Amino acid sequence: MKPREAAAELGLSYPTIKQWILAGKLETVKTPGGHHLIPRSALAPFLKGRPETEDKRERFQKVSGRNQLIGTIVEIRIEGLLAKVVLSIGDQRITSIITADAVREMKLRKGERAAALMKSTEVMITRV
């Protein structure tokens, strides 16, 4: 598997996996192009003793925040470490900048339903 996929499997960041590869802590196979591939068997020692769960974010599904807007993902653009996610909510759009790893981990896709959760101590109102 690719290093990014291994990072997601282990619940680690991509830079951490790259450091492990360069330090020799994680066994890899190099492709003819010089890229690293990680055998699934190389991840086994790091997965031992970890509780099995289908959804790593399962424990975060119930939150105290009540300012949640449900909409449809109309755009996802990943550039480097960050991603732009745009939700269409009614005739309005809301944009969020989150990590690219979060988009991959949550498996967000255009056309799917998602919620925007706002946390703020202040809400401003303006006349439109």
Rank of each mutant, 00 (worst) to 15 (best):
P3A: 13
P3Y: 05
R4W: 00
A6N: 02
A8Q: 12
L10H: 02
Y14H: 13
T16L: 09
I17G: 00
Q19W: 05
Q19A: 13
L22S: 14
L22T: 08
G24S: 08
E27N: 07
E27I: 08
E27H: 12
K30L: 09
K30R: 14
G33N: 10
G34Y: 07
H35G: 03
H35Y: 10
L37N: 03
I38T: 02
I38M: 02
P39H: 05
P39F: 11
P39A: 07
A42E: 06
P45N: 14
F46P: 02
L47H: 07
K48N: 09
G49V: 03
P51K: 15
P51R: 15
E52C: 00
E52S: 11
D55W: 11
D55S: 10
K56C: 00
R57D: 09
R57S: 08
V63P: 00
S64I: 12
S64W: 10
G65H: 10
N67P: 00
Q68D: 03
I73M: 09
K84F: 02
V85Q: 14
L87S: 02
I89C: 06
I89H: 01
R93F: 04
T95H: 03
I98A: 12
A102N: 04
A102M: 10
V103C: 09
R104G: 03
R104Y: 08
K107S: 13
L108D: 02
L108P: 01
K110C: 04
K110P: 01
G111Y: 02
G111V: 05
E112Y: 06
A114M: 11
E122A: 12
V123H: 05
I125G: 01
V128L: 09
V128M: 11
